[in-house]
Design a protein around this nucleic acid. Structure first.
Lengths: 204, 204
DNA sequence: AATGAAATTAACTTTTTAGTTAAACATAGA
DNA sequence: TCTATGTTTAACTAAAAAGTTAATTTCATT
């Protein structure tokens, strides 16, 4: 491990924070370097350009987002429990990276080339989950356990509720003067509510 | 009406489209001017700075968003019908300006001063609606028409489902190769589904 | 200790974009 | 028609941020 590894790592970490918070356009290489404790020439030494550094971060984030949309199922459990677990797991995933979905959505929207490269990843992850969830749903339907609903709608609703919980959180926090504890409570409350909303839609 | 009015209007319209699509940071004054069919010096002649032009647009958009969160109630109707109407109206509002919520959310997030100025508008609109919706909900609860739920959660879920329907639409469109008709169908489908999700949560 | 590659710095250049200015033009009203 | 005012243009400047370079330092290896 050469001494430069530490610098490179520091830049990557500072860049991740800066890009996730501000996006590519508003992030400044000088500010990333400052946060990493190095001169901004180092950033170019290790990553050549702001765009190349961004891609390094962004690729990982797209994979994270794709993973958040990937679910595994335990077919021995009741379907509603499976869905509750899926929705809860997705919520926790986003909770751990609250800015992730909007960040990826925004950057992909603002750059056609990135769309071409990274959309397929997300679409593939999505397709897998829809297929698997669809199989379980079909079985539950035949067993008369749930009301009919499109699989894609079910998944879309879960994602919508969970993502939006965090998309506006920093703003809600300021708007209502919430402290750390308020936020924790709000998030816990929304987690339970989102799951309840989804289960209500399925219950007969 | 002086001849400059047309120029000013053309710039405003081009700016609105550009800002909503790209955000303040990525929007270029030269590109706005080009789209408006004038030189970019004209933009500064009429609006002084990019920021001042942006504020002109942004203020209106925040008001639009606040209005989208404002609901009136017809107390003679069954509560579930009122909620369905509210959710549907909100959906249609966002459908007419699909980029509006994310645009305002993003810009407010990236600028502290704007947060200070514009958040109270949104918070006020929200408070009014929560209060009114809360009164109706309480009555419906006493009448045994619905299951208990926090008013703020109910409203938050409606907004989440409706906003996310459009936040990812341009991307979903490209990802799944949807044409105009596919999009129309998807939107109509989501409108019905979002309302059904909300009503399911309320029904006993 | 000498060497050389990797790492770091400070100062520089380039590029992009916002913003300015002075001169030309248009037009309504005296 | 003359003039004053508002409008438009082309060419400019200013500022900010990305990116480069050459000189210097560090440090592992011989």
């Amino acid at each position: 491990m050469s001494r430069g590894d530490h610098t490179e790592q520091a830049i990557l970490e500072a860049a991740e924070a800066e890009f996730l918070d501000k996006g590519l356009a508003l992030a400044k290489t000088a500010e990333i370097a400052r946060a990493a404790g190095v001169t901004h020439a180092m950033l170019h030494y290790y990553f050549r350009t702001k765009e190349k550094l961004f891609e390094k971060i962004f690729e990982g984030k797209v994979q994270d987002l794709a993973r958040s949309l990937t679910a595994t199922f335990d077919e021995t459990q009741p379907f509603l429990d499976q869905v509750a677990k899926l929705a809860g797991a997705h919520f926790d995933f986003i909770a751990a990276q609250p800015r992730l979905p909007m960040f990826v959505l925004n950057e992909i929207h603002h750059n056609e080339e990135r769309r071409k490269i990274y959309l397929p990843m997300l679409v593939n992850a999505l397709r897998d989950t829809i297929r698997n969830l669809g199989l379980q749903l079909e079985a539950a339907l035949k067993a008369g356990e749930v009301r009919p609903v499109r699989t894609s709608d079910l998944l879309f609703s879960i994602a919508s509720l969970n993502v939006m919980t965090f998309a506006g959180l920093p703003i809600a926090r300021e708007a209502f003067g919430m402290d750390e504890e308020d936020v924790r409570q709000f998030v816990a409350q929304r987690r339970a509510e989102n799951i309840e909303v989804i289960l209500s839609r399925l219950r007969k």
